[in-house]
Amino acid sequence: MRQFVNRLICATLTLASVLVAEASAEPLARDLFAAHRLPAVAQPSSYGFYSKGCFAGGIAIAPDGPTWQVMRLSRNRRWGHPDMIRLLEQFSRDAARDGWRGLLIGDISQPRGGPMLTGHASHQIGLDADIWFSPMPAQRMTVEQRERDGSPSMLRKNSLYVDDARWTRAHEAVLRRAASYPQIERILVHPGIKKKLCDTVQGDRSWLRKVRPYWGHDSHFHVRMSCPPGSAGCKRQDPVPRSDGCDKSLAWWFTEEPWRPATGPAKPKARDVMTMAALPAQCQAVLAAPAPASEVAVTYTGPGEIMQQPVAARAGAAYPVMSLQPQNVPLPTPRPSR
């Protein structure tokens, strides 16, 4: 009996210690940043690295522009450093002149950046953006369409190679245009798309160095800006190699190794365990900073413009953007199957 009582006491103490530890555990950074629906009112600045940081003074790109439409509005991830938002507007305008009707813009960042509840490891400092490989349709899409519809993969089914029935010179042109901006230092695409470019691009191939192969980017491409002026706390990524990347580093992606399923116990994603202690000290101030009075004052609509009327009052916009909830929304997949 005494042995049973001792075991019961030990079990009770162990449970109590676990409960105390859980109660005193630091909150997850992803929960703290996701709770903010508006940006930090401060001088625009990015802090930390693309996958471990935050930013202040962000603005949102309008859901609709003359040459863009924003997808997956319920995620509230159309925020970025002002330099990124203005660059996306310029990119959309230039791409339209190149023959690409307009951009469908996916995730940029949360209002104050930081790790997200779902999806990306990066997109934390307002300098990353996803662009769909489908051009903007002629008509304005409804909110429901933007939540439901997807961009088709550029690959053949169950293959690492591009489907020639879907790939066009316009796809090459929009990537070439993205690479033309000095502010953009990297463009992430599926390895099969990188190979397609290596096999078909003629003339000047210097821009291919910016196009980097990576898992999961078969229906969209990812543009990444370099650290902008005024962001002393932004940590730069290593420069891309000087070569065009059509070498053995690309050939590796067409071996079994990068696609082999992981073995052993699953490791938690960094965003799911990251606390504020892992982020730059400035991110505490970013979380504590006041928010603007409304989204209206920080939504960018075009060159030099900041939105002057509520979103729902704009032509063709019949949505309360902030009321949508991210339910049943497809999320990015990091590693497509072979």
Rank of each mutant, 00 (worst) to 15 (best):
residue 39 P to N: 01
residue 256 E to S: 14
residue 119 G to H: 11
residue 144 E to T: 12
residue 185 E to S: 10
residue 161 Y to K: 04
residue 179 A to C: 09
residue 79 W to Y: 12
residue 46 S to D: 03
residue 4 F to S: 12
residue 151 S to I: 05
residue 128 D to H: 03
residue 36 H to N: 02
residue 209 R to Q: 09
residue 223 V to L: 10
residue 218 D to A: 15
residue 53 G to M: 10
residue 320 P to S: 15
residue 234 C to K: 03
residue 259 W to V: 06
residue 312 A to E: 11
residue 130 D to M: 04
residue 58 G to H: 06
residue 144 E to S: 05
residue 321 V to E: 14
residue 305 E to C: 04
residue 131 I to W: 00
residue 262 A to F: 05
residue 186 R to E: 08
residue 244 D to N: 03
residue 333 T to E: 00
residue 287 L to W: 05
residue 166 R to L: 15
residue 154 M to D: 08
residue 152 P to R: 06
residue 210 K to P: 06
residue 303 P to E: 01
residue 128 D to M: 02
residue 73 L to T: 03
residue 157 K to D: 05
residue 166 R to W: 08
residue 208 L to N: 01
residue 28 L to N: 01
residue 274 M to Q: 11
residue 38 L to S: 06
residue 14 T to N: 07
residue 272 D to K: 07
residue 324 L to N: 00
residue 133 F to T: 13
residue 58 G to F: 13
residue 208 L to Q: 03
residue 241 P to V: 09
residue 242 R to Y: 04
residue 262 A to V: 10
residue 41 V to N: 02
residue 91 F to A: 01
residue 38 L to F: 09
residue 290 P to T: 08
residue 321 V to G: 05
residue 86 R to N: 15
residue 61 I to M: 12
residue 304 G to K: 11
residue 200 T to K: 07
residue 214 Y to S: 13
residue 31 D to L: 13
residue 196 K to H: 15
residue 275 T to V: 06
residue 168 T to Q: 00
residue 295 E to T: 14
residue 130 D to I: 03
residue 336 P to E: 13
residue 143 V to M: 05
residue 124 Q to S: 09
residue 322 M to T: 14
residue 163 D to N: 15
residue 84 M to W: 01
residue 259 W to N: 01
residue 310 P to F: 04
residue 129 A to W: 00
residue 231 S to P: 08
residue 191 P to S: 03
residue 262 A to P: 06
residue 44 P to V: 11
residue 273 V to H: 08
residue 60 A to F: 13
residue 260 R to E: 03
residue 65 G to Y: 08
residue 16 A to M: 04
residue 305 E to D: 10
residue 190 H to T: 00
residue 135 P to S: 02
residue 301 T to R: 06
residue 321 V to W: 10
residue 283 C to K: 01
residue 333 T to L: 01
residue 70 V to E: 14
residue 204 D to M: 15
residue 41 V to D: 05
residue 24 S to H: 09
residue 75 R to W: 09
residue 71 M to L: 08
residue 69 Q to E: 11
residue 60 A to Q: 14
residue 18 V to M: 07
residue 73 L to V: 07
residue 50 Y to M: 07
residue 277 A to W: 05
residue 289 A to C: 11
residue 215 W to R: 12
residue 180 S to Q: 07
residue 134 S to I: 11
residue 321 V to L: 14
residue 234 C to Q: 00
residue 10 C to Y: 06
residue 257 E to K: 15
residue 192 G to E: 10
residue 275 T to F: 06
residue 105 I to T: 06
residue 26 E to R: 14
residue 184 I to R: 02
residue 130 D to N: 10
residue 196 K to W: 07
residue 137 P to W: 08
residue 31 D to V: 04
residue 71 M to W: 05
residue 302 G to S: 05
residue 67 T to D: 15
residue 332 P to K: 01
residue 71 M to D: 10
residue 153 S to L: 07
residue 98 D to Y: 02
residue 181 Y to G: 07
residue 322 M to D: 15
residue 160 L to Q: 14
residue 92 S to Y: 04
